[in-house]
Amino acid sequence: MSAPILEVRDVHKVYGGVRALNGLSLSVAAGEIHCVVGPNGAGKSTFFKTLIGVERPTTGQVFYKGQEVTKLPAFRRARLGLSVKFQNISAFGELTALQNLFVPLRRNHRKADIPARASAVLARVGLAGVEDTPVRQLSHGQQQWLSIGLSIAAEPDLLLLDEPAAGLSSEETARTAELIRELNRSGMTVVVIEHDMGFIRSLRARTSVLHYGRLFAQGGFDEIATNEDVRRIYLGAA
């Protein structure tokens, strides 16, 4: 396995009296798709926030490409090539798809190059032709893909996706899984945080299971899916 692109070491996060993360250690290898699952309240969202820099861990360390980033704010991590898509649709509704892409593209590209770049990004996420459509008029699935498009516009090395299949139809979910595999084939490491095991199944990737803020199990998807303990915590949570 190649060197980890992302690593968290013994991370704790305490909100008031609640231990959202309780000694979590986990590493993601460069070039892989890595799924992080867990029942509600397992600490997935908190884990995600400490990775992107929106929250700082109470104790513990976060490393990205071998460099400690525990205290770096989100915008500095983004500049190191770490990109993120939040769970909710985070495109700017009043602007067109192209105008939305202007925001991430502007940082590294000249204004004149942006329309062509934006079209290329839209084609990549399967949205060719919607450049001038206001985001509000796009379907839910299209908005999710645009949101992924915004995240990959800066050509990150690591893409973190929080529940990319939330609210999608089964056909849209399949297309999203294919998009993630395609991005990964092009060299991007992708971390998918997901509640829905069905979607994880379609990715067939290395999977980490969180439970009570710790790493509960880790392995290939089949290994995880047949793990009795994992089934128990999922059923227990349901």
Binding site: P73, A74, R79, R107, A154
Partner: peptide, 8 residues
């Protein structure tokens, strides 16, 4: 928050 994650 979203704008910040684009590196701004």
């Amino acid at each position: 928050r979203r704008t910040e994650t684009f590196g701004y």
